[in-house]
Amino acid sequence: MSLNLFDTIPDFTQESTEGPLNFYDWARGDWVLLFSHPKDFTPVCTTELGAVAKLKPEFDRRGVKIIGLSVDPVDRHLQWAGDIERTQGAALNFPLIADVDRRVAGLLGLIHPNASDTATVRSVFVIDPAKRVRLTLTYPASTGRNFEEILRTIDSLQLTDKHKVATPADWKQGEDVIILPSVGEEEARALFPQGWTEHTPYLRTVAQPETAD
């Protein structure tokens, strides 16, 4: 199947480096980052797993759980974890699904026959607490993923879920945001009493609202 934005991600139970894992029970009501790998002992993915392990405190701070997926068995995952810690300086600190029968890959649409009939593509899903897909990215095998960009996107999603704003190109946490065009003048004055800058009637920028609101 192919998952589109705001589709509900299907539930599954599969073995992992932390034992049998039911996805819905594990995710509960949290945000989730799920990212897939074609197989174990691949060089680009080795660097990616190390990078995410180092960034885990940042994901924790945003209330985001992390889970990886590869088609090899648990014993291979655990051997690979040793290489990751030795070469990347960070131990695997989140579960890695052992999708040996490729059942989860099928559910999530991770087998792209033109790329490989057996290996999963390198995809990313950001999933909200309602189990809805909010971001999908698929990278070519030769290009490592940018997890700082994924954190930036999560910041935007969490902010814009709470406030009637959007984030502009290259936005970072703490920078000005855009008032949604659907927000009329009267509502804007109530929501943003400090005022805003009107560049055009449809492009109004305002200081970022407090995320704790």
Score class of each variant (00 low, 15 high):
Leu3Tyr: 12
Phe6Ser: 13
Asp11Trp: 10
Phe12Asp: 07
Thr13Ala: 09
Gln14Leu: 13
Thr17Gly: 12
Glu18Thr: 07
Asn22Cys: 04
Gly29Leu: 04
Trp31Asp: 00
Phe35Val: 05
Phe41Ile: 12
Thr42Lys: 13
Pro43Leu: 10
Leu49Thr: 06
Gly50Cys: 11
Val52Trp: 00
Asp60Trp: 12
Asp60Ala: 05
Arg61Thr: 09
Val64Asp: 14
His77Val: 08
Leu78His: 13
Ala81Glu: 11
Ala81Asp: 09
Asp83Val: 13
Ala91Trp: 12
Leu92Thr: 00
Asn93His: 05
Asp99Ser: 07
Val104Gln: 07
Leu107Cys: 06
Ile111Tyr: 02
Ala115Ser: 08
Ser116Tyr: 07
Ser116Leu: 04
Asp117Asn: 11
Ala119Glu: 15
Val121Gln: 04
Arg122Ile: 03
Arg122Gly: 04
Ile127Gln: 07
Ile127Phe: 15
Pro129Ala: 09
Val133Arg: 03
Leu137Glu: 11
Thr138Gln: 00
Pro140Leu: 01
Ala141Leu: 10
Glu148Asn: 10
Ser156Gly: 08
Leu159Tyr: 03
Asp161Ile: 00
Pro168Ala: 03
Trp171Pro: 07
Gln173Arg: 10
Glu175Ser: 05
Glu175Gly: 09
Asp176Gln: 05
Ile179Arg: 04
Leu180Lys: 15
Pro181Cys: 01
His199Pro: 09
Pro209Asp: 01
Glu210Ala: 15
Thr211Lys: 12
